[in-house]
């Protein structure tokens, strides 16, 4: 960990993080508001439409689950996990700023570790904003009794681990690439394939068997909020984050860094 480097990453990305954090806070705040205002309509939905992901739309925890698993949240969280992580290495290598940094007494492993830590902090903060938004909205709408704060914190940790795994994959792609584009493409492809596997299993019984191979399958807000957290999901996501991070630390230390451009 190198503090000047850490703050350098924050300085370059603070606007993105503030935008994402505000967006997720508002999104979280809307969960109880939407639930309260369309509760009657939700209860009248046909049975097949009452479930979205692991969330039951007829209950407040179910709506909160939907808000966490919504494609919009996936896209916003991936803005941090991918769009900040990849430029930290491959983007800087391509622009030529990396060589001025590495011509200082900074180990390459420190660069990778510090980038990972900075992105992890950003994910923690932005997803926490969503949790805070939900809590504030629930207080405003008088729904606090329907949602356990402890469960919500566990959902937050589960979400952080999920996006940290995608961030770690993006970091591995970035550390192995000389250019931003291919690394972003690889990281986005990984997210999309995981999302596709999870969503496909929800619609098509044959594809259900593939769902466990998706990292999204191990983000189970619905189960956690109804008291059924699985420690296996946390371990799996932690391992899924650790493997690409270890690869990045190992590979980036040993690779040649070509001239930019």
């Amino acid at each position: 960990m190198n503090f000047p480097l850490y703050w350098g990453i924050w300085r370059r990305n603070w606007a993105k993080v503030v935008a994402v954090t505000c967006g997720l806070a508002v999104w979280g705040f809307l969960a109880p508001v939407i639930y309260k205002s369309i509760l009657g309509a939700l209860k009248g939905l046909p049975k097949g439409l009452q479930q979205f992901g692991s969330g039951d739309l007829r209950t407040f925890p179910g709506v909160v689950t939907v808000m966490f698993e919504h494609p919009l949240v996936v896209a916003i969280a991936c803005t941090i996990a991918v769009a900040i992580t990849v430029p930290a290495i491959a983007g800087q290598l391509q622009r030529g700023t990396l060589e001025l940094m590495l011509a200082r007494p900074i180990a390459r492993t420190t660069l990778i570790g510090t980038s990972a830590l900075a992105v992890l902090t950003m994910l923690l903060i932005s997803l926490l904003a969503m949790v805070v938004g939900i809590q504030v909205g629930a207080a405003v709408e008088g729904l606090n009794d329907q949602l356990s704060l402890g469960s919500l914190v566990i959902v937050w940790m589960n979400a952080v681990l999920l996006y940290a795994a995608f961030g770690a994959f993006a970091l591995a792609a970035s550390s192995a690439s000389n250019r931003n584009g291919p690394a972003v493409a690889a990281a986005l492809a990984f997210v999309i394939i995981n999302y596709f596997l999870e969503v496909l299993g929800g619609f098509w019984d044959v594809a259900k068997a593939w769902q466990p191979y998706s990292l999204f399958h191990h983000f189970n807000a619905g189960e956690i909020l109804t008291g059924g957290a699985s420690i296996f999901d946390f371990w799996l996501l932690a391992v899924a984050a650790a493997i690409p991070l270890i690869f990045a630390l190992y590979y980036f230390q040993r690779r040649d860094l070509p001239a930019p451009g």
């Binding site: 350098g8 370059r12 622009r95 030529g96 700023t97 060589e99 001025l100 011509a103 200082r104 007494p105 900074i106 001239a259 930019p260 451009g261």
Partner: peptide, 15 residues
């Protein structure tokens, strides 16, 4: 070594 070296690349790039 890097503590005692100053380096100017061919086309220096900054943030």
């Amino acid at each position: 070594i890097m503590r005692h070296v100053g380096y100017l690349p061919g086309d220096p790039a900054f943030d």
